[in-house]
Design a protein around this nucleic acid. Structure first.
Length: 427
RNA sequence: GGAAGCGUGGCAGAGCGGCCGAAUGCACUCGCCUUGAAAGCGAGAGCCCUUAACCGGGUCGGGGGUUCGAAUCCCUCCGCUUCCGCCA
């Protein structure tokens, strides 16, 4: 959420910057609303001040003066009440407006609104398409591989829950567990503290990281009686909100947190896209990385964060590239985002596997994650998050990049200590 | 789910409906003292809103009510504790 005064400051250039991501800011109505709200608050405060003075004087007033004072106090009560009601209503309007405004794209973020507009940052290994994984036979995709290997059962998942769910079997299930453990271990080596967190969270928590109020249709929601809870779409939500409404000492920053959780996404509006395989699921498992940092360091922290995401792919020997997303293609809360895209031989193209975002102080303002410097200066933290990898999409890459002509799949050496096997063989 | 109790500043812990933003202790900051430190003495200090700033307002779990006036009385919600039931 934005500070309305900063947003309206001409130096911020908010209208132009928001237009870059396709959001039309009505600065005039915002300014008017803000002024009206402040006027109402001021009016209430003035009346309240007089009311307090009057009430105090009642006690010491002479019996003659007292009735007039009590009468005046009664009048003021309604003035205060009216101003409060108006101020609260206007403030609610202001909050609604502000909660719906996305973060300002950083100036170095490229123009555009699609993934075609992203800026290529680097490719690993440096050749592209990646030489080492360009197979000299017709590459199978992960669905065919997974079924032939007996580790993936999509029809039965559909029977249980519907489309966009997966069942992993045998070494497939074991591979999922191995990947999660490997990711968590790498995260720990990079300084992240592991958490186990709830995957059902309340409305306030979802609002803190920006999923609500605007994107409720993307979330699964539970409701028992009037007890409303949302299933997290990513562990970014609980991890970032751990420090909601807290003040953190700047000396304790940066905080680096990780968690392995299931993630739930309604995928509303993606009908017909990625219907095959494990790419786009209603439920998937992911290790997430979150950093809570001093605000002025957020961009350099993003550079660090994306290398942490890359680290696991390099460790697994999976070819990928990093792109900087265009202004109009970023998530609601981000001011800058790097996507990590892994090479999928089965599709002969790079597909998003991880997304590392710098949310500046945008989420921290919503969630109330404040900082205090040693000299007492107060401010808001910056929050960043990255996948540190999703298990399913990594499995896809592992199968497709690791496949051999005979349909078997090599397990990367780094993962063997976790799996206990070096290859997947057709059943 | 049933019963009882409790929610006050960073922590602990007082608080007759008005003199309470709130005693006291610890912790904290700045002085004095000291070669230095500790102790001692003195002063100060929370957070939020509004404001260019000053002023002003709010804040004793949240919300509502009674009253000229609420930390203090009433209602309600939330959270915590203990006991019972149920349960991974």
């Amino acid at each position: 959420m934005h500070d309305p005064r900063v947003l309206l400051d001409p130096a911020t250039d908010a209208v132009r910057r928001l237009a870059r991501r396709g959001y039309a800011l009505d600065a005039a109505s915002l300014e008017k609303l803000l002024a009206q709200r402040n006027a109402a608050i001021h009016r209430g405060d003035e009346a309240r001040a007089e009311s307090k003075r009057t009430a105090t004087s009642v006690r010491t007033a002479s019996p003659d003066e007292r009735p007039a004072l009590v009468e005046r106090a009664r009048e003021l009560k309604t003035v205060v009440a009216d101003a409060d009601v108006e101020g609260r209503a206007l403030d609610a309007q202001l909050q609604d407006l502000l909660l719906g405004i996305p973060n300002l794209p950083a100036d170095d973020v490229p123009d555009g609104s699609s993934d075609d507009d992203a800026e290529l940052i680097r490719t690993w290994p440096s050749s592209s398409p990646p030489e080492p994984v360009t197979v000299d036979f017709t590459a199978r995709d992960h669905v065919e591989l997974g079924e032939r290997l007996g580790i993936l059962d999509l029809p039965r998942a559909t029977k249980l829950s519907g489309p966009r769910f997966a069942v992993l079997r045998g070494r497939g299930a074991k591979l999922e567990r191995a990947l999660a453990r490997y990711f968590l271990d790498v995260a720990e080596e990079n300084g992240y503290t592991e958490f186990s967190v709830p995957t059902l969270v309340n409305r306030e928590t979802m609002t803190g990281t920006g999923q609500l109020p605007k994107f409720e249709q993307d979330l699964f929601k539970t409701g028992v009686a009037d007890h409303e809870l949302f299933l997290i779409p990513t562990a970014e939500v609980p991890l970032t909100n751990l420090h909601a409404r807290e003040t953190l000492a700047v000396d304790d920053l940066p905080l680096a947190y990780t968690a392995h959780t299931p993630c739930f996404r309604s995928e509303a509006g993606s009908y017909g896209r990625d219907t095959r395989g494990l790419i786009r699921m209603h439920e998937f498992s992911k290790v997430e990385l979150v950093r809570i940092v001093e605000a002025s360091t957020s961009r350099q922290e993003l550079e660090l964060l994306v290398t942490h995401a890359e680290a696991v792919l390099r460790g697994l020997g999976l070819a990928y590239r990093v792109v900087k997303l265009a202004a109009g293609d970023m998530g609601f809360s981000a001011q800058a985002t790097y996507d990590v895209e892994v090479w999928l031989p089965g599709q002969q193209r790079y597909r998003e596997i991880a997304s590392a975002s710098d949310c500046s102080t945008f989420q921290a303002r919503r969630a109330g994650i404040r900082t205090r410097a040693s000299d007492g200066t107060r401010g808001f933290a910056a929050t960043l998050n990255s996948s540190g990898m999703p298990i399913g999409r990594t499995l896809v890459a592992l199968l497709e990049q690791g496949q051999q002509a005979d349909g078997s799949v090599r397990i990367p050496p780094a993962l063997v200590p976790y799996t206990g096997f070096e290859a997947l063989e057709p059943a």
